[in-house]
Computed example of a mutant assay.
Amino acid sequence: MEQDIIFYTNPYSRGGIVHWMLEELGMPYQIEYLEYGKSMKAPEYLAINPMGKVPAIKHGEVVMTEAAAICAYLADAFPEAHLAPALSERGDYYRWLFFVAGPLEASFGLRTCGIEMTPEQQMQLGCGRPEQVLDVLADAVRGRQYIAGERFSAADVYVGSHIGWGMQFGTIDKRPEFVTYWQGLEQRPAHRRSMEQIEAAMARFPFPGT
C-alpha cells in the first residue's frame, strides 16, 4: 500500500501516540496541524472526522480515527515494519491495546471529571476503578520488556504512551513496574524523533485555552 499518509494532529493531543507510530513505520507521511476550535471544527476537517477531534489519518482512500485503531491499522497496512505479532499470537496484543483504550481511558476520564463511581455504577459502566485498572496493568508489564510478546509492537506504542504521559503528569503512580517498562521504550529512536517534532510544533501553536 504505497499511497501517501496524511496525519491530522495537534501537538497538545493524543496525536503524539500516532506520531510515534508513524516514525516506527519508517514510511513517509504528511502532517496537517489543526487548531482546537478553529481548523479542527472546519467543514473540511469534519468531512474527515465528524467528531472534530484529532488524531486522524488518511491513507489513500482509507480514513481512520481513534488512536488505538490507527495504530492497529498501520501495523497491518505496513507488515514489513513488524509492528504486529502473527495472527496466531495476537491475544495479548489486542487485549492490552484495547484494555488501555477502554477501561483505563474511561476510568481515568471519570476521575478527571471528579466522578467517583459507586459499586452500582462500576457494574453498569464496566471500566472498573482506576486503582483496579492500574493493578491489572502493572501485573501485565511486570518483568516484561514488551506488552505483547518478545518483540516491540504497536501495542507498546499505545500502552507505553499512556503510562509515560500518566507518570509525567501525575495521573499514574510511578510504580516500579511502570518505570521499568517505560524506560525501555522512551529512548527508542522513533519516539525521540516524534518528540522532537512535537516540541517544535508546540513553539508554533498556543496551548489550548490560552
Rank of each mutant, 00 (worst) to 15 (best):
G102F: 05
R90D: 04
A56P: 00
A81Y: 11
S107E: 03
R95S: 07
S39A: 12
G91A: 14
A84D: 11
C71H: 05
P50G: 12
L74V: 01
L74I: 07
V63C: 00
Y94S: 02
G52S: 12
V62L: 09
H59N: 13
P119S: 11
P85A: 13
G109Q: 12
G37L: 04
D92M: 09
P50F: 09
F78T: 08
G102Y: 00
G102K: 01
L87D: 11
E44F: 01
E105L: 14
K53H: 12
S88Q: 14
C113N: 11
Y94H: 13
P79R: 06
S107H: 05
Y73R: 10
A69E: 01
T65W: 11
Y94V: 11
F99K: 02
M64F: 12
Y45L: 01
A81Q: 12
K41H: 12
P55D: 04
F78G: 03
L110H: 06
L104V: 07
T65P: 05
V100C: 10
I115Q: 04
I115D: 02
Y36G: 00
V54W: 09
L74S: 09
T112D: 14
F99A: 13
E116T: 14
M51E: 03
E120P: 00
G91W: 11
M51G: 09
A77T: 06
A106F: 11
G52F: 08
S107P: 01
E105G: 06
M64R: 13
G60V: 13
A67Q: 06
K53G: 01
E44A: 15
M51Y: 14
A47D: 09
R111A: 14
I115G: 03
P50D: 07
D92Q: 15
D76W: 03
G60N: 08
P85T: 04
H82D: 11
A101G: 10
E80G: 05
Y36N: 03
P43R: 07
I70Y: 14
V62E: 06
E66R: 03
M64G: 01
N49K: 14
K58I: 05
L83A: 10
L97Q: 02
S88C: 08
I48D: 08
F98G: 05
F98V: 12
P119I: 07
W96D: 08
A106H: 10
V63H: 00
R95Q: 15
I115L: 08
I115K: 06
H59C: 05
E80T: 04
G114Q: 05
E116K: 13
G37A: 04
C113M: 13
E116S: 14
P50S: 10
M40L: 08
P79T: 00
G37V: 06
T118D: 09
E35C: 02
A81L: 06
V62I: 13
G109K: 10
M117D: 02
